[in-house]
Amino acid sequence: MSVGEALLSLCDAQGMRSIAVVGTAKNVGKTVVVGTLCAALHARGVRFGIASVGRDGETVDVVDTMPKPRLRLHPNTIAATASGVLSPSPACEILDVSNLATALGPVVFIKTMAPAFVELAGPPSASAVRALKRRLFELGAQRVIVDGAIDRLAALAGEPDAVIVATGASAAATAEAAAEDAGALVQRLKTPAFDPEQPYIRISGALDAMAVSELIRANEMRQVVVTDPTRIALRGHALIRARERLRIACEQPLNVVAVTVASIGRDRYFEPRALARAVAVQTNLPVFDAYTDRLERAA
């Protein structure tokens, strides 16, 4: 079974119709993972839609102008992208022009008529991403893939989306550090849903270090409830400490199903199996490497 097919099966098992792939950093193989998912859906004969939060699939990195993997879509794929990055050839069918604005023009819904490299650019707001997803389903997509960004994950909170976290050699200086970061992120994203039957205190806005210190000092025993996991503005040890002392929960949980690793980075390479193993231990989730076509699980 290919990595794309294995990831799809995981999502199927949880009944998720849409899948969001989010990276812990730039150049961690997000587009490659999205490409494998597209290939697997195409192989299944599923009509699917794809959208991006931010910009993805460009030929070169807009920051450092280095070449990037490109997103090649099969015919009959529905995509949402900014009109300004839509390639004139091969021509696509224009299905709709939305009133969602991006810096690169309004978001356009297209259907590929021939195999095509497509650059995706989406709107920045959570509500706009939700609107995109809804429209892709209306336009006939049976599944939707969202090429996401960590800071825009709020768009997926409370939605029946499977979240796949991508990490890799570009994320940190060592494989251990990359694994630790991925572990902390997954722990944050997997913040459980709160129990309305139990006492709780609702935090409006972000739960940051100052708020956590206050709550710990006040010996807060109730559930500390944020809207969604993206509102937890804590990392690394601060998050671990906060979880030890407080019962942090959320109103709209996220469904993180797997992690992918890319041992090939822009500036460094990690040993592939060691990276996958370390990430599996830190995240306690199935870890896939699209480059080695392998699955790693924590022992």
Partner: peptide, 13 residues
Amino acid sequence: QRAQIATDQFIVM
């Protein structure tokens, strides 16, 4: 002995 070559670049151990 792999299911497929799914990516442009791939790793062989």
